[in-house]
């Protein structure tokens, strides 16, 4: 067994899902059978995915730890590595290192109501938590999901959104930015923070989880504050450029906080205490 912390595991792409323009998901299984059985992670953790010859890219693990035997990642084609990954087909091999980082303290949330708020490509990390909680549905109170994207086409996980919408133990509110709607669109038209305020989930005994573009998060945090959420009850996951994932390469820090080692999951209270290095 190698002690090389930079050596990835080999994984096979078992399935590919087109989620939105330039956004796709891979369902990945470890080549090593023993690892396939033993691999475990917690919701919120991330990994480094390699396209050999091009390098590594960081994404969260978008599947839930309650679903064993595979992991899923969702990414947007935006650079060299993600461009290379987009060219891979079912059956191809890629690399994975992880799981790294901390996680959402789901066990501490037993008995509480949960509100998930995501924008665009910010849904994948939140999806892992949503499925984790839905798979243990009886442990939690009301579950609300507020999800928005620029246009209808940009909504990811369309099949799952439909499934969550059909369930009577989930309240799903979908939105697209003004101008992004189609004629058939049945959801809201508006920005996520506004839609959230209108939906007005009650803050009492409730935990909120949010992820999305920085500007959305900023206004979602304000909206949650207005709704009476305390900063300790609001969780988010930070994104920063990463190379090593294990606290060595020196680039993911927000001030003195190393996102790869001490994050990526933080409460809003913790984020507010950080150096302004965003």
């Amino acid at each position: 067994m190698s002690n090389n912390i930079y050596l990835p595991h080999l994984v096979t792409i078992e399935d590919i899902y087109e989620e939105a323009p330039d956004v796709r998901s891979f369902r990945l299984v470890f080549k090593d059978k023993a690892l396939r059985e033993s691999f475990d992670f917690k919701t919120g953790q991330f990994g480094l995915y390699s396209a050999f010859g091009l390098g590594e890219s960081t994404f969260c693990i978008a599947s839930a730890p309650t679903r064993k035997g595979y992991i899923q990642c969702t990414f947007r084609k935006s650079g060299r590595v993600t461009g290379g990954l987009s060219e891979l087909s079912i059956g191809d091999t890629m690399g994975f290192r992880g799981p790294y980082g901390n996680f959402f303290p789901v066990d501490e949330w037993k008995g509480k109501n949960l509100v998930f708020i995501a924008g665009g490509i910010g849904l994948p990390p939140v999806r892992s938590v949503i499925w984790n909680c839905l798979d243990r549905r009886e442990e939690f109170g009301d579950i609300t999901v507020v999800y928005g994207a620029r246009t209808v086409a940009d909504l990811v996980y369309k099949n799952e959104l439909q499934h969550w919408g059909d369930r009577n133990d989930v309240r799903l509110i979908q939105a697209v930015d003004p101008g992004g709607q189609t004629e058939e669109w049945q959801g809201k038209v508006g920005f996520v923070p506004t839609v959230l305020e209108e939906a007005a989930p009650k803050a009492e005994n409730t935990v909120a989880v949010t992820c999305g573009p920085p500007i959305m998060i900023k206004f979602v945090l304000k909206a949650l504050e207005k709704l009476g959420f305390s900063d300790e009850a609001v969780y988010t996951t930070l994104e920063n450029k990463m190379k090593c994932g294990v606290g060595k390469c020196g680039r993911c820090n927000v001030g003195d906080v190393y996102v790869c080692k001490e994050g990526p999951v933080y409460t809003a209270a913790e984020v507010k205490r950080m150096y302004n290095d965003f």
């Binding site: 390699s50 050999f52 010859g53 390098g55 390469c249 020196g250």
Partner: peptide, 20 residues
Amino acid sequence: CFDITDEGTQFAGERRKNWD
């Protein structure tokens, strides 16, 4: 600080740690 990059082609190469 360092970078981790692949050098070579998409068919064969090396993964390296390089000063950054």
